[in-house]
Write a protein that binds this DNA or RNA. Structure first.
Lengths: 102, 102
DNA sequence: CGTGTAAGGAATTCTGACACG
DNA sequence: CGTGTAAGGAATTCTGACACG
């Protein structure tokens, strides 16, 4: 297993790397978008993969997507289901295009 | 800059990854063998490169090398000086061989 | 729904020192 | 010299809640 998958970063480092507030990061976990591990004492430990995922999430949130939609996308992404996901993909792109047009 | 160089790991994670005690890690920093960054509040932040370096250091210590020698080696290593370093290289190997022969 | 914030507590980390050897 | 440990304090993180919208 490479470094990118190791769950070792504290939430403070993740916040600095992503630019997201601690509140946002915890909330995205609460919604099941990311799954950090926990130390014996209960503190969250993230991987660099989580960091990358969070940056993607941040973009999708900016595009007006909702957490449950994003979560669905990741689920579909995993099972490589090219069907229903299309709606969200297109919706995401439309939102992005709309945003840029302003 | 890749993930390996990012100073983001707390000392606890480094301790788990390397198997070294917090005391040892702090001591090796005190001797100048590693240079973690500090957060605003003063907590150490290490990189995966530091983790790798610490595992090397641990081996050299096991081989009976002293911290100041190890430090010299890293200095020489940087300036690619192939001269005096030889003593320590050989000494390290001899110590290792000696240890295995037991 | 997504996010900020104040609140109280618990886990993590920090430093300087004493101990042993 | 290298490392363990107890000590007291400071920084970091945790959760549940109230607020706004």
């Amino acid at each position: 297993m490479s470094y990118k998958e190791k769950k070792v970063l504290p939430i403070g480092s993740v916040s600095e790397l992503t630019g997201l507030s601690l509140r946002k990061i915890r909330y995205y976990e609460e919604r099941g978008l990311i799954l950090p591990e926990r130390s014996g004492g209960g503190t969250r430990k993230f991987s660099f993969n989580d960091v990358e995922k969070l940056m993607d999430i941040a973009n999708q949130i900016e595009d007006g997507m909702q957490t449950f939609e994003i979560k669905k996308m990741y689920k579909k992404d995993k099972q490589k289901d090219k069907g229903k996901i299309r709606d969200e993909m297109i919706r995401g792109q439309l939102n992005a295009a709309f945003k840029m047009s302003k």
